[in-house]
Amino acid sequence: MDIQETIKQTVTSSPVVLFMKGSAQFPQCGFSARAVQIVKACGVDDFMTVDVLQNPEIRQGIKDFSNWPTIPQLYVKGEFIGGSDIMYEMFQSGELQELLKDIAQA
């Protein structure tokens, strides 16, 4: 399957998907670590992460998919939300909590 097709399926396979460096338990980059913390702070503990360091094709492919040159990248219900700066701004303003409230565990 084409890598773009694979990515398209991946971003819709779970309500919250985070493309990052490393895993949620062991992030390999400060920005990815911050992204994980922000999602958790919104009450979402169970979300999918994709470690781009495990697959060079996905690492490049996700950048082409969203026209976004950096990792991490957050997708909610298949839609690209932003990188770690945007996640932080949206968290501070409360927008991200609002966006994730249906998904957050009670």
Binding site: N67, W68, P69, F80, I81, G82, G83, D85, I86, E89, M90
Partner: peptide, 10 residues
């Protein structure tokens, strides 16, 4: 949007 702005910077 924020995404669009950052894309313009990139």
């Amino acid at each position: 949007s924020r995404v669009k702005r950052h894309q313009m910077v990139y």
